[in-house]
Write a protein that binds this DNA or RNA. Structure first.
Lengths: 162, 162
DNA sequence: CCGCAATTGTTGTTTCTGCAATCATCTGCT
DNA sequence: AGCAGATGATTGCAGAAACAACAATTGCGG
């Protein structure tokens, strides 16, 4: 307010960025919940596990991957275990550790949900981007992430990265 | 998974978008809380009110502006009233309505916090963008918002998270 | 003018999240 | 080998969010 260190048009881009995130993520979450009765956080966990070697990840790695606190992830995995989508397996190399493993049912749910989700990403986000946009975005976003990677070691983000 | 309707590089951009949001918002929130003991949601409310005519907004308008559910906003405003940053004023035209009004103390806090926040936006986001990036982003994000405005009338976004 | 659906804001209830404390285990150093 | 400090995961607890139900008010249609 006092000293506008950021020109107006640049601040406007930041606000647009926030609004796009809120609108698109909100739409994706609503669709996934509506069509497949699956919270977006569950979907994210299933994707992370399905992509991992042996479809399993240590709790801590999974927490970093889906941007959750460890305690939050413990409870989230509790629910997914109860639903039958995930199993807990003790880690043989490090007896402190626990693997979260994606079950067959988890894979099935993921497969069914991915159509809805990817379709939503296309419809709400990707569809509006030209090839030039994609290039420019990849470039700019990549530069931001590269710049943040070194400096900001912040805790897990609330509001669910998603 | 089954049918990749979205090319890999485009899905990667979507994931980058999510990661940038999580990292940058997380950093901003942490800094604001650290330096000014002010939650980001409070800051957002103060900005919305300070920019509004007479520094006041109906609860519903404010909820839309900061992407909160109405009930969530009621309680958030409760806390901000208790802190002395906001006042409730009955709306004379519509006796169902309530204005949330930014107090003098609220303005002071906002002024003090805006330096930290805007500095953070510059450092974590804006700084990494060239003028070309800003133009491309404004264009692409604007197109996405324009496309979403008509179709997706979704409820308030969770997560914000913020 | 009257009734009835729609809107506004708040409240009860449930769910979820993160912080701090805790327990078990690992690693490095002597 | 033995001990100190770090690390992995879980749990108690309190704060915060959304959904649904509710009371008050509006204004449209007959």
């Amino acid at each position: 307010m006092a000293r506008p260190r950021i020109p107006d048009d640049r601040l406007r881009v930041w606000r647009q960025f926030l609004e796009v995130h809120a609108v698109v993520v909100g739409a994706l979450e609503a669709e996934l919940l509506e069509d497949r009765d699956l919270p977006l956080a569950w979907y994210d966990v299933l994707v992370a596990l399905a992509e991992a070697p042996d479809r399993r990840l240590r709790m801590q790695d999974l927490a970093r991957r889906v941007l959750f606190s460890r305690s939050g992830l413990t409870r989230l995995v509790d629910r997914m275990v109860a639903a039958g989508y995930v199993e807990r397996v003790p880690c043989p190399d490090d007896r402190r550790g626990t693997f979260a493993v994606c079950t067959r049912a988890g894979l099935d749910v993921l497969r069914a949900a991915s159509g809805v989700h990817l379709g939503g990403v296309h419809r709400h986000f990707d569809r509006h981007l030209t090839d030039d946009d994609v290039g420019a975005l990849a470039d700019a976003l990549g530069r931001i992430l590269a710049g943040e990677a070194g400096s900001g070691e912040s805790g897990p983000a609330p509001g669910q990265g998603r």
